[in-house]
């Protein structure tokens, strides 16, 4: 899962000329075709999961055992029906709400944690910094799936708890990125100047350092959404996910596994949705990296 972040981190940076930093960034982003494609897909997805279930004439929870396993496209069910005769499309969209919500919320939480740890460690350095970053290292020593599962044992699965455990296993990368960035900025003239003028540590961290590290944080956050959506799928697949009858892409896949042979569409569609959403966020993250390349605007 962290591989998404890793790989995106090494994607080549395209350097483009521009005028003001912000418009230059936007210009670079606009020219990143994959990023634009990703943004488009996410927009459509968000729109669809919000309004789709209102438009479709099916109740995502209504069980109709006489119409189980209707293959797509059948009987008005464009994507077929599932093992309890529920319309698959409307469930996919409802599941999208859950999966995207978890993705976004986990991103917010892990970015907050990661940024706080990273800024603190980067600004103070020394013992505090070392201890914090060693904790980051220690947590990173667990393959994230291992850690996710161990944490999942604690909780009663709900949107909130799943979000929290995903966030708990996803903040370390953000912390590292931010710490590195802050450490680099720490001894630059404008920070030293602010400190000489008597600014408090907290002021320097939040008002001076953080805004200048915004680029990498935004990039890491975007990739964290992708990672979190995947993480939700893994947790559900391994049996620790959201409870029925609420659908998420992950638990739909988990339930579809045993019908792989008789009703393959039940596995194919949720898998495609996950892949599509995660790919799109990775594309956007890639585009943002190019657009917000901190090195370019700060040097």
């Amino acid at each position: 899962m962290s591989s998404a972040t890793v790989a995106a981190a090494v994607l080549p940076n395209r350097r483009l000329a521009g005028t003001s930093p912000r418009s230059r960034a936007w210009g670079r982003f606009k020219r990143h075709r994959l990023a634009m494609f990703g943004s488009g897909v996410i927009l459509v997805l968000v729109f669809a999961v919000i309004f789709g279930p209102m438009i479709l004439p099916f109740d995502p929870l209504h069980i109709d055992l006489r119409h189980r396993f209707a293959p797509p496209p059948g009987n008005g069910h464009l994507f077929g029906t599932d093992q309890l005769g529920r319309d698959l499309l409307v469930r996919l969209l409802m599941a999208g709400r859950i999966s995207l919500t978890i993705g976004f919320m986990a991103m917010v939480v892990s970015t907050l944690i990661g940024t706080s740890v990273g800024v603190t460690a980067g600004y103070y350095g020394g013992l505090v910094g070392t201890v914090l970053m060693r904790i980051v290292d220690a947590v990173l020593c667990f393959p994230s799936v291992f850690l996710l599962l161990a944490l999942a044992a604690f909780i009663k699965p709900s949107i909130l708890t799943i979000t929290l455990i995903i966030a708990a296993t996803g903040w370390m990368e953000v912390a590292r990125v931010v710490q590195a960035q802050i450490k680099a900025l720490r001894h630059r003239d404008f920070i030293l100047a602010a400190e000489m003028l008597g600014a408090s540590g907290r002021y320097v961290m939040t008002r001076e350092l953080l805004p200048n590290a915004a680029g990498p944080i935004i990039v890491a956050a975007t990739l964290t959404v992708a990672r979190a959506i995947l993480a939700e799928a893994y947790v559900s697949f391994l049996g620790y996910g959201i409870q029925a009858p609420t659908a998420s892409w992950g638990n739909m896949l988990n339930n579809a596994q045993q019908y792989l042979n008789s009703a393959p569409w039940l596995a194919i569609f949720p898998g495609l949705m996950i892949t599509l959403a995660v790919t799109s966020f990775n594309f956007i993250g890639d585009g943002l990296r190019d657009a917000l390349d901190a090195r370019m605007d700060l040097t």
């Binding site: 929870l61 209504h62 069980i63 055992l65 093992q83 309890l84 029925a244 009858p245 339930n255 045993q258």
Partner: peptide, 12 residues
């Protein structure tokens, strides 16, 4: 999974 389907039917 099978039992979970029965649970959902009972829920309804």
């Amino acid at each position: 999974h099978v039992r979970e389907q029965a649970q959902q039917l009972l829920q309804q």
